[in-house]
Simulated assay, not measured.
Amino acid sequence: MQENRATAPLSKVPEVTLGFWIIKVFATTLGETGGDTLSMTYDMGYLASSLVFVVPLVALVLLQVRARGFIRWLYWATIVASTTAGTTMADFATRSLGIGYLGGSLLLGGLVLAALLIWKRVTGTIAVESIVSARAEWFYWITITFSQTLGTALGDWAADDGGLGYLGGAALFGGSLAALEVLRRRSPVSPVVLFWAAFVLTRPLGATLGDFLDKPLAHGGLDLSRPWASSLLACAIVVMVAVLPQRAGRHPG
C-alpha cells in the first residue's frame, strides 16, 4: 500500500485539509470585496469588471494546466481570480440582466450541476484526487468558476431576499458547512459529493462576510473601505499560503 501511494501520480491541486478550507474562505471573501471594488467603488460596472477579471483568470488557468506539478502560489492565485470574476459575473446576471438573486442562483446552480455531470461522463470521476490530466483540470476550473459565481448569487439571496442580513447569512452557510463535516464523519454519503457541496457553500459564506465588511452601517455592514479590506485579506492569504502546510493530492491509484 505504501509503495502504491508513493508511486501514484501527483495532482496539481492540494490535498483537502483544514488549511485548504481556511484559505478558501478568505479567498472567497476577498473575491467579494475585490469584485465590488472594481464594479462599485471605481464604478466600472459589472460587465466591464467581469471582462477585466476574466482575462487574468484565463491566463492563470492556462498556466495551471501547463504546470508540471502543484505550485501553491499559482493554484491560490487562480482560485482568487475565479472568485473575483465570479462576483462580478453573478452581479451582472442577477442585477444587470434582471433575473434576481433567486433566478441567478437557479441558473448558476444548473450550470454547476451540468459541468459536474459532463465531467463525470467524460472522465468517469469528479473526485479532485483524480485530477492528473489536462482534460480533468479544465473541467475542474470550469466547475470552480461556475461554483464561485453561484455562491455570490446564493449569498445575496440569503442576505437580502431571505432577510437574514450579512451575519445571519454567514451563520447559515457556516452552520451548513459544519453539518457537512458531521455527515462526512458519521454518514455513508459520498465524500466527493460532500466536497463539492462544501466547495459551493464556502463561496456564499465568503460573500456574506465580504458584504459585512464593506457595506454601509445602515445596511448592516461595517462600512470599511473596499480597497483596504481587499488589501488586508490579500495579505492574510499570502501569509497563510506561505505558512500553512500544503502538498499535492495523490491519485488513489
Rank of each mutant, 00 (worst) to 15 (best):
V241K: 00
G210P: 06
A77V: 00
L107N: 08
V13H: 11
T208R: 08
R186H: 14
L38T: 14
L63Y: 12
M40I: 14
L224I: 03
L205K: 03
A93G: 00
S176K: 05
L167Q: 05
A159D: 06
A218W: 03
P216T: 03
A179F: 12
L38W: 10
M89H: 04
G206I: 06
T33S: 09
S225H: 02
R72G: 01
G165S: 09
V52E: 09
V192C: 15
G104V: 06
I131T: 08
L30W: 08
L18D: 13
L180Y: 12
S50N: 05
T28D: 15
L113G: 13
E181I: 14
S133L: 07
R184V: 12
G155V: 15
G104S: 07
P9L: 00
A136Y: 07
I142P: 08
K120G: 03
W196G: 11
F173G: 06
V200A: 11
A81F: 00
F70M: 09
Q64D: 04
L213I: 01
T149Q: 14
P14N: 06
T94G: 00
I131S: 01
P191H: 13
L47F: 09
V238W: 02
L63P: 05
P216I: 01
I23S: 05
A218K: 01
V238M: 10
P188T: 12
I22H: 00
D160K: 15
A248N: 12
F199D: 07
T149N: 13
G165W: 08
F139P: 10
P56A: 04
G109P: 00
